[in-house]
Each structure stands twice: as structure tokens, then as C-alpha cells.
Design a binder for these strands. Structure first.
Length: 83
DNA sequence: GAGCTGACATGTT
DNA sequence: CAACATGCCAGCT
């Protein structure tokens, strides 16, 4: 756990229901616009359900990945009308 | 014009 | 040192 990852989790938690953010946006929010990869890794290793990592998507509009299956991620986003 | 792949850059685990 | 849930660009189909 680093300050960076903690900040990332905090940002993701702060995302409103139905609102999504890209890895690049989160990375920029924490002050490291080039840490988009680190953001994905941090979320990937994080297994805390308190962190709605499904709200974090690619800048291309693609879903990306999810700890419990990318398909589930897309499903969750549809359920909350975020996509 | 749209979609895919490969290569390079960046930061954490 | 190697891997990775990305991003941007170049080249191909």
C-alpha cells in the first residue's frame, strides 16, 4: 500500500453512482497523470468491495478488466445506468 | 472511416 | 527483474 494507491482508492470511492472515471483521469486526479497503469494495477490487487472499481473504465470507452470478471463489471455499470 | 495489433512510455506490486 | 485491469501513436486490413 502506497500513498498513491490509497489516494486512488479514495478517488474511486468518491465516484457517484452512475458516474464513471477513466484510469487516466484518476491518475491525473492523484497528481500523476502518467500513472494510469499504476492505477489499474492498484485496483487489480485491491480486493476491497468498498472500492467500486467497476466505475473505472478505459478512456477508449472500453470496459477494461475486473477482479471478478470483465463481464460482471459491464453488467454492474448497466445496472446503475452508468453505461 | 472504423477496428485491431504492435511498440514505447510510465508507476506500483 | 517481470508483470499489469492503460494511453498514445503508427501501420495494416
Amino acid at each position: 500500500m502506497t500513498e498513491f494507491s490509497k489516494t486512488v482508492y479514495n478517488m474511486v470511492k468518491d465516484i457517484r453512482c452512475g458516474q464513471t472515471m477513466t484510469y487516466a483521469e484518476v491518475a491525473r486526479a492523484v497528481g500523476k497523470p502518467r500513472a494510469y497503469r499504476a492505477v489499474g494495477n492498484a485496483l487489480n490487487k485491491n480486493h476491497d468491495p468498498s472500492v467500486p472499481c467497476q466505475r473505472v473504465v478505459r478512456s477508449d470507452g472500453h470496459i477494461g478488466g475486473y477482479n471478478r470478471g470483465a463481464g460482471l463489471k459491464e453488467k454492474l455499470l448497466r445496472e446503475e445506468d452508468a453505461i
